[in-house]
């Protein structure tokens, strides 16, 4: 009994066939599984293994190396807050404590209503020019203040799972654009 939909399986097969070696498709395949299931279940990984002609343990060994794959289900929306140096210098701690209060759970936790899973990360998100910054459902949100965080979360809450609004697809000077002084 497959847990992956025909669409996800087709995506994995397409990925597999476009690389010189099928194994190269492991990461893109795991993304496809996570996109469908919200996390990497053992059954989902076993299907990746079957489609790529690997063993389940080979796929699990790869999955566990990368920090963006989830090994358990989370909230409908994912919030990732950068606490590395550039964000820390401009108030990341205030954003983190605000999220803790507002969402009522510590970093790594999920809200009671299942709307949000949030975590802080020491991995620099690459938004230092717009620090402090976070990502909501993979989209950058920069120049945060507690008020802006509230507005962003309110806007996301009702959106379909994993599809928070995109902040600014292309600003006048791109990511981390300089602000007026």
């Amino acid at each position: 009994m497959n847990v992956l939909t025909p669409r996800t399986r087709a995506e994995i097969e397409w990925q597999r066939d476009r690389y010189p070696q099928a194994r190269s498709a492991v990461l893109p395949s795991l993304w496809a599984v996570q996109h469908q299931l919200g996390y990497l279940s053992p059954e989902g990984m076993a299907e990746v293994a079957e489609l790529l002609r690997l063993t389940p343990s080979e796929v699990e060994a790869v999955a566990s190396f990368y920090s963006m794959y989830f090994d358990h289900p989370g909230g409908r929306h994912h919030v990732l807050v950068c606490i590395n140096v550039s964000c820390a210098l401009r108030g990341a701690e205030e954003i983190v404590s605000h999220l803790e209060r507002r969402l009522g759970c510590p970093s790594g936790g999920t809200t009671e209503d299942g709307a949000f899973t949030w975590e802080q990360t020491v991995e620099c998100l690459g938004a230092c020019g717009g620090a402090p910054a976070m990502q909501v459902d993979h989209h950058f949100q920069e120049n945060l203040t507690p008020e802006r965080v509230d507005a962003i979360l309110d806007g996301v809450r009702g959106a379909p799972a994993g599809e928070g609004p995109q902040a600014r697809p292309h600003s006048s000077r791109g990511s981390s654009a300089p602000r007026a002084s």
Binding site: V85, S86, G126, C128, G129, H170, R173, G174, S176
Partner: peptide, 16 residues
């Protein structure tokens, strides 16, 4: 794979 703390130029080059 730009991930160096403080670095965001490659993202700008791709975005822009």
């Amino acid at each position: 794979d730009e991930s160096e703390p403080g670095c965001f130029k490659d993202r700008a080059l791709i975005d822009e």
